[in-house]
Design a protein around this nucleic acid. Sequence first.
DNA 1: CTACCGATTGACT
DNA 2: GTCAATCGGTAGA
Length: 205
Amino acid sequence: MTFLSLSHDFYARDPITVARALLGKRLIRETSAGLAAGRIVETEAYLSSRDPACHASRGLTKKNAAMFGPPGRAYVYMIHARWCLNTVTEQEGVPSAVLIRAIEPLEGLDLMQQRRGTQVIRDLARGPARLCEAFAIDRTYDHWDLTSGRELWIADDPLLNGTPLRIIRSARIGVTSAHRRLLRFYLADSPFVSGKRIAPRTARR
DNA sequence: CTACCGATTGACT
DNA sequence: GTCAATCGGTAGA
């Protein structure tokens, strides 16, 4: 089964559209150790200069430079000594991005378990830094071209094939500025989503 | 150079 | 539920 990477045009849209569209897609990672892949179940949009929570809202630095580059590249940054993965969106010069927050592991579970140091499948890639550890993503993939179709890329999921997805929108997790905006998106029915469920529809009991 | 901080996580009460 | 370890980037002395 081949997994053709999503094109430049997929990413060359506003970050909210891309954040929704990425749900259900496959993140694929190929190393000499083997292949790991999973379904994206949670994302967050960061809206360039019009969003105080966006790392690039105060202009270009060495750290956030990838966000100013072309759409379809990766922006990998460190927070609390852990790596997190974003996809750059819109157009070159407009520093917007989508944070990938959680993934449902599908292939290469043994690899992920090894990298994460846990057997618990639900914990392998639930959270932005956990997924980077499970997929062996670090600073060397900052600026990486996610449309390249090698090493690290994102593709349509053939298993999903048009299945309608129930998407819930909420406030972003851990963001201390711009609380009000509902820029987090996740699959309603996935147990692999991080953080607390804010939507009443999924409230327990 | 030092001080402080964060789009987090895991251990603990 | 609470809390502190984590460390590279950034600001400021």
